[in-house]
Design a protein around this nucleic acid. Structure first.
Length: 554
DNA sequence: CTCCCTTTGAAGGAT
DNA sequence: ATCCTTCAAAGGGAG
């Protein structure tokens, strides 16, 4: 917990969750976090990528080189054009006062790519923004940026961070289509209160208000991703009436130019027909997807006539009720941000494989890093709940194709999984990183994986490391929701240093981490028996596993 | 063209 | 209280 605030201290805001998260997080294991992550990626890359990837550096700069997908460019070119135009109008390109801050890119996506696939320096506009909330000591690069600058800027211009430099919070932008003019914060809805839980959050003015680091003169500066949510003054940009998302948001009173921009700024996959995706307010929300998306053959057993009628009705209903997507969770946000990078570094294109890598990297992230995403996700949920008070996750059930998770017998499962393993894309040896080899090497020294695991000094590393590899190869049933208590116990027993950790675990619910599965156990228990050394190294584990086994074995 | 795969996390229903 | 299921993103692969 100390580390979290060490850098910016109070400004982080949302201390409640954030801190809890940290407590329960993988304590030290992550210290090597970034490095390990990088290494991990590199590792994966080397294995996954055939050759020529010079992953010498995972540094951002490298990533940028990546040739952008043409499609993306195509998709967003128009948008970019307009955005640029608008930007200029608003002096959008004004020099960024906050150096070193997460870069924001104007219309996203791909916009920065030249038709020829090259990255356009000019096109690539990085907007710096202050990111107090997420600021974390560990993230040196981002740290400074948090300068308390007056934030009275208008967050009118939707901005998207450069994919490779995206700030963790960037994803929130997805909801930002609702930009509004700063001056119209209703204010009756306090951001301090969790709309859903109704829990009054401690007044963390800094939590939200600082989000808008836009400097006064920088009219066109980029709004903080959450900027649209919260006005520079620290008040919510808009408040949602209790009635639900159908009510017009006062904040929605954005100017025409903005609205048009906004309407076109969202993710390509959202491209809904103009009318459908529009929020009741008339403003499209990223979370709102045209009903068209969902055409479930749900009414298959209905007679033609009935079918037709019912279908019509259903359609109408759907039209009335746009599909509101779930808010992205921390990992999703992370994925969104990092996918491009991973893809760039690896030749892999398959999302499944990429996701595996991302999953590993996620675990390799330092607590601080993860905390950023958790916080971001929290904000997103909060925002989402504000926007759609009546929305329930259940609403989306059945809208998507059902995943056939139905694994009948454990055996089959195992086989299936084995078969699935990223084999195709990831060479067994490296890509999937057998725990001992590639993966372990990243976190621990390749030479002495077991030692590393056993080492109390780096419990965290062990923990995440072991888990990761396995997850790639075997999926998890084991992912099995180990209860936190189990994990905690395990960790505690694992290393003396984790005593504090276990203590934190007892922290109140609500922490994202609480529910986080701890892969380690799964890996250890994994049929593949990849970690014999780990077991040996960690005698304590053996004791724990029992309970774990029972759980995972179901 | 549609669904699957794959990841983690959140939510909500079921037990 | 715990477990289980679904969905969120994404895009290549498979049918």
């Amino acid at each position: 917990m100390p580390q979290l605030n060490s850098g910016g201290g109070d400004e982080l805001g949302a201390n409640d969750e954030l801190i809890r998260f940290k407590d329960e997080g993988e304590q030290e294991e992550k210290s090597p976090g970034e490095g390990s992550a990088e290494g991990d990626l590199a590792d994966v890359k080397s294995s996954l990528v055939n050759e020529s990837e010079n992953h010498s550096s995972d540094s951002d700069s490298e990533v940028e080189r990546r040739p952008p997908p043409r499609e993306a460019f195509e998709k967003h070119r128009d948008y970019l054009t307009e955005a640029l135009r608008r930007q200029q109008d608003a002096a959008f390109f004004k020099g960024p006062p906050y150096a070193g801050y997460p870069f924001l890119m104007i219309p996203d996506l791909g916009g920065h790519y030249l038709p020829n696939g090259a990255l356009s320096p000019s096109a690539r506009t990085y907007l710096q923004m202050k990111w107090p909330l997420l600021d974390s000591p560990s993230t040196a690069g981002l740290k400074d940026a948090r300068s308390p600058s007056p934030a009275h800027l208008s967050n009118k211009v939707p901005v998207v961070q450069h994919p490779h430099h995206m700030h963790p919070l960037t994803p929130l932008i997805t909801y930002s289509n609702e930009h509004f003019s700063p001056g119209t914060p209703p204010g009756h809805l306090s951001p301090e209160i969790d709309p859903k839980t109704g829990i009054p959050r401690p007044p963390h003015p800094s939590e939200l208000s600082p989000y808008y680091p836009l400097s006064p003169g920088a009219v066109g500066q980029i709004p903080h991703p959450l900027g649209w949510l919260v006005p520079p003054q620290g008040q919510p940009m808009y408040s949602i009436p209790p009635g639900g998302f159908r009510h017009p948001y006062p904040a929605l009173a954005m100017n025409a130019s903005m609205s048009s921009l906004v309407s076109s700024r969202f993710s390509p996959h959202m491209v809904p027909p103009p009318h459908h995706s529009l929020h009741t307010s008339g403003i499209p929300h990223p979370a709102i997807v045209s009903p068209i998306v969902k055409q479930e053959p749900s009414s298959g057993n209905i007679s033609p006539n009935l079918h037709t009628k019912s279908n019509m009705i259903v359609k109408k209903e759907e039209e009335k009720k746009p599909h509101i997507k779930k808010p992205l969770n921390a990992f999703m946000l992370y994925m969104k941000e990092m996918r491009a990078k991973v893809v760039a570094e690896c030749t892999l294109k398959e999302s499944a494989a990429i996701n595996q890598i991302l999953g590993r990297r996620w675990h390799s992230l330092s607590r601080e890093e993860q905390a950023k995403y958790y916080e971001l996700a929290r904000k997103e949920r909060q925002l989402h709940s504000q926007l759609y008070p009546s929305w329930s996750a259940r609403d989306n059930y059945g809208k998507r194709k059902k995943r056939k998770r139905e694994k009948q017998s454990p055996e089959m499962e195992t086989h299936t999984k084995t078969k699935k393993m990223c084999v195709q894309h990831l060479p067994a040896d490296k890509s999937c990183d057998s725990p001992a080899s590639s993966h372990g090497s990243m976190l621990d020294s390749p030479a002495t994986p077991s030692a590393a695991l056993a080492s109390p000094a780096a419990p965290a590393a062990t923990h995440s490391e072991q888990a990761q590899p396995l997850s790639l190869t075997t999926k998890p049933e084991a992912r099995a929701q180990l209860s936190l208590s189990h994990s905690a116990a395990f960790l505690a027993s694992k290393s003396p240093s984790s005593s504090s950790f276990s203590g934190h675990l007892s922290s109140p619910v609500g922490s994202p981490l609480l529910s986080r599965p701890i892969p380690l156990t799964s890996s250890i228990l994994s049929p593949s028996g990849v970690f014999p050394s780990a077991l040996q190294a960690l005698p304590l584990l053996q004791a724990q596993p029992l309970s774990l086994v029972t759980k995972s074995s179901d």
